[in-house]
């Protein structure tokens, strides 16, 4: 059974985010005065063929831990849904 997985990789709380803070500092120039707490991450999508949702989640979890993130500085939020992602191609 195919599950579509969406992984959001974020810097862990407390880890410096130079890119986020540089973007935030530039915003007032453009008239965006109220924007705070900019954090930059990565979004990764893929499909997994697995027996059930929990198996798919476990595999995605392992993939994140071993490859997609470095747990030293990054957290991942994993979303799993039944069915291949719409429009996904290789």
């Amino acid at each position: 059974m195919i599950f579509s997985v969406h992984v959001e990789v974020r810097l862990r709380p407390g880890i410096a985010d130079p890119q986020g803070s540089t973007i935030e500092k530039a915003l007032p120039t453009l008239g965006f005065d109220g924007v705070k707490g900019v954090r930059v991450g990565k979004s990764i999508r893929f499909d997994i063929d697995a027996a059930d949702e929990s198996a798919a989640r476990a595999e995605a979890d392992d993939l994140c831990r071993r490859f997609l993130t470095n747990p030293v500085i990054e957290d991942a939020v994993i979303h799993v849904e039944a069915g291949a992602a719409a429009g996904a191609t290789s």
Binding site: P18, Q19, T22, I23, A26, T29, L30, V40
Partner: peptide
């Protein structure tokens, strides 16, 4: 710093 994209902030 080329943050966001190279040139993306500098253009402003």
């Amino acid at each position: 710093g080329d943050y966001l994209r190279p040139g993306a902030i500098a253009r402003f």
